[in-house]
Computed example of a mutant assay.
Amino acid sequence: MSEVVRDPKLPERLLVTERDALMPLLRRAPERAFDLPTACPDWSVRQVLAHCGAALTRISHGRLEPGVFSPESNASDVAERDSWPLAAVLDELERGMSQAGAVIAARSDGILDLVALGEWIHAGDVRESLGVPGAYSGDGIGEALALLVIASRRRKTPRLHATLPDRQTPLLLGVEIEGRPPARLICTASTLIRLYADRPLADSHYELTGAQERELHIFA
C-alpha cells in the first residue's frame, strides 16, 4: 500500500473554508431551525453544533484527557451547553474553526487530523437538516476527500477504487486484504462521503461491487 504523505495544513484549510461557508448560513437562520433533527440520532441542529464547537475548543485549549471524544464525553459537552444562549454556541464554533487548525497542524503525529473531516461532515448534517442543496458537496470537498482517503486507511476499510464522475481524479481508499480483490465504486463525491460516513443516501445513485456498504463506514 502506498503511503499518503501528510499535509499538516490540510485540516486547517478545511476548517477555515467550512467556517466561511457555514457561519453566515447559521447566523441568518431562524432560531427554530436549530431545533430540527439531524442524521445524528437524538441530536438536533443546535446539539450537533454544540458538539462541534466543544471538540474544537478542547483541541485549541489542549484539553485532551483520556476518554475525550468518547460518546460519554461528547454527550457531557453537549449537555453543558444546553443552557448557553444560541449566540454563544455559534461564537464558540466560529472561534474553534478559526483556532483549532493551527494546533492540529503543530502535532507531528497527525492524530487529530480527522477531527476536521468529522467537523465538515457534521456541517453537512446541519445543511441537510436546513434543506440546503448539496449538503455534503460544498466548499472544501477536495480537502474532505483527501482526509477521507486517510481515514479509510486508518480504519482499515477494504481497498476500494472509486470513480467519481464529478471529479477528475479517481480515488484509492482503504487497505489491501489478502485474497480479496479491490472493490469498485462509481458515484458522485457527495455520495462517497455519505457512504463512508454512514449518512442517509436518500435518492443517491451508486454502483458498488466487491464490498458491502457497512464495511466502508469510518465512524464506529
Rank of each mutant, 00 (worst) to 15 (best):
S73T: 09
V126F: 07
D82Y: 08
S73M: 03
L93Y: 01
N74H: 00
F69G: 00
S98P: 02
D91R: 11
A100W: 00
D113I: 03
E128G: 04
I104W: 02
I121Q: 03
S73R: 08
Q99R: 15
L93A: 02
E119Q: 15
S73I: 04
E94N: 07
A102Y: 04
G96E: 04
R107N: 06
S83F: 03
V89K: 03
F69L: 10
S70V: 07
S83A: 14
F69A: 13
I104M: 14
A102W: 05
S76K: 13
G67H: 12
R127L: 00
V103Q: 06
A106R: 12
R81M: 15
G110L: 10
H122V: 06
E119D: 10
A123C: 03
L86H: 02
E72K: 11
G124K: 02
D77S: 14
G118D: 15
I111M: 14
D91I: 10
A79H: 13
E92W: 01
W120C: 10
V89D: 08
W84Y: 07
S129Q: 05
D125H: 11
D82Q: 13
D109P: 00
E72G: 15
V126Q: 09
R81E: 12
Q99G: 04
I111H: 14
A105S: 12
I111P: 00
L93R: 00
V78L: 06
A116Q: 06
L130M: 12
A87M: 08
A88S: 14
G96P: 08
Q99I: 07
P85W: 10
V103I: 13
D113V: 03
A123Q: 01
A87H: 10
E65F: 13
N74M: 10
E65A: 15
S76Q: 15
P85Y: 12
E80Q: 15
R127K: 15
H122D: 14
A79D: 13
G96Y: 03
L86V: 02
F69C: 03
V115Y: 08
S98K: 12
S129K: 09
P66N: 09
G67Y: 11
H122Y: 11
I121R: 04
V89Q: 04
M97C: 08
D82C: 11
G67N: 11
S70Q: 06
S83T: 12
E72Q: 12
G96T: 04
L64K: 00
